[in-house]
């Protein structure tokens, strides 16, 4: 308990330290308005990190999330061009994203194929489908309706709708993870698959729901992404799946499954978001970002591994007292 808590505390301190460092070079970055912008900018990463967290908790990994996002974003753009009203588009992308996630989940559940193989495959398939849909053409800002583009940016109570959506999802996800049987099952399946079977939890079905959930979140984010940046093409969010995994790893979600927290995933994403937004501000080339997130992943794994510590039993009495 204390250990897991400390993991989040350490991450929180790391974020504060990072902000302090940036503050020393460029105080303006730490202004509330500027931080709010960082939060908004990081919202897609946070949402996807939650979905990825559910998948990783169940001992799987979803490398197709960014491709799913791109496909759903493109479909949202196409539907908008066809004049479909926004609420319907939202429903459609969530459903499509969930279906794409469910396809991953079915292969993992029913055919028992390792998730890394499945999602490496669907990652290219989903992106390829975008090409088939569009012949490689872009959807540009002028082809999108004003309402479509404006919705995520509409400011409400001081924050854009996109940020509010993220906050609602974080809250909802926390309730799901901590207060529903499915959420607890994610932990159970990843922590001890054998025991899960004996408690009446189906490992495969739980993994299926984790993938479906991750897919639905990726689908929704697809719309948000396309609307916010006002452009859709085959390669949007290319490589973003790695950022998502990185956010989870930095947030202390155990890659072996069964351990992690919502706060950790959110903070892991925020850490990367702050780095990304701060680099240009403090005058470092944005090309440093990739190396920095790679280093952050490695540091985080090393740190998490240390936390897991010794599993061996302690036999000697005096050693027991020393512990």
């Amino acid at each position: 308990m204390s250990l897991l808590k400390s993991r989040e505390t350490v991450l929180g301190l790391a974020i504060l330290l990072l902000l302090a460092l940036i503050y020393s070079r460029f105080p303006g970055f730490v202004r509330p308005a500027s931080l709010a912008r960082v939060l908004t900018d990081t919202s897609p990463l946070i949402i996807l990190a939650l979905g990825q967290m559910a998948v990783i908790l169940t001992k799987c990994i979803d490398l197709s999330m960014a491709a799913n996002l791109a496909l759903c974003g493109m479909v949202a753009g196409l539907m908008n061009m066809a004049g479909v009203p926004l609420p319907l588009i939202l429903l459609a992308v969530i459903a499509l994203g969930a279906a794409l996630g469910a396809f991953n989940g079915i292969l993992v559940w029913k055919l028992n194929i390792p998730s890394i193989v499945v999602t490496l495959g669907t990652m290219t398939i989903y992106r390829g489908i975008i090409f088939l849909l569009t012949d490689g053409r872009w959807i540009n800002a002028h082809q999108m309706s004003a309402g479509f583009k404006a919705f995520p940016r509409t400011v409400y109570l001081g924050l854009p709708v996109m940020t509010w959506i993220m906050i609602v999802i974080v809250a909802g996800f926390a309730v799901l993870i901590y207060r529903t049987p499915l959420g607890r099952a994610f932990f159970a399946v990843g922590g001890n698959p054998h025991a899960a079977v004996y408690t009446g939890i189906s490992v495969g079905r739980t993994q299926f729901w984790a993938f479906t959930l991750a897919g639905a979140l990726a689908g929704l984010t697809g719309y948000l992404w396309v609307a916010r940046y006002s452009v859709a093409y085959v390669d949007i969010a290319a490589g973003f799946e790695l950022d998502v995994v990185a956010a989870c790893v930095i947030g202390g979600i155990a890659i072996a499954g069964g351990a992690g927290s919502v706060a950790g995933a959110v903070m892991g994403a925020l850490f990367l978001g702050i780095v990304k937004n701060a680099l240009p501000v403090v005058g470092i080339s944005p090309f440093w970002q990739m190396a920095i997130s790679g280093t952050a992943i490695l540091v985080a794994i090393a740190f998490n591994a240390r936390g897991q510590g010794q599993q061996g039993r302690i036999i000697l009495k005096k050693a027991e007292q020393r512990e």
């Binding site: 309730v175 207060r179 529903t180 049987p181 607890r184 099952a185 932990f187 159970a188 922590g191 001890n192 054998h194 025991a195 899960a196 004996y198 408690t199 009446g200 939890i201 069964g258 351990a259």
Partner: peptide, 25 residues
């Protein structure tokens, strides 16, 4: 065979936890 990351109460009741409002645990 139980679950390290869950609490004692959650381990005892996993699969048949008492539900409250909105079907939440």
């Amino acid at each position: 065979v139980l679950f390290d990351e869950l609490t004692v109460a959650e381990n005892i009741f996993i699969g048949h936890a008492p539900r409250g409002r909105f079907g939440l645990i």
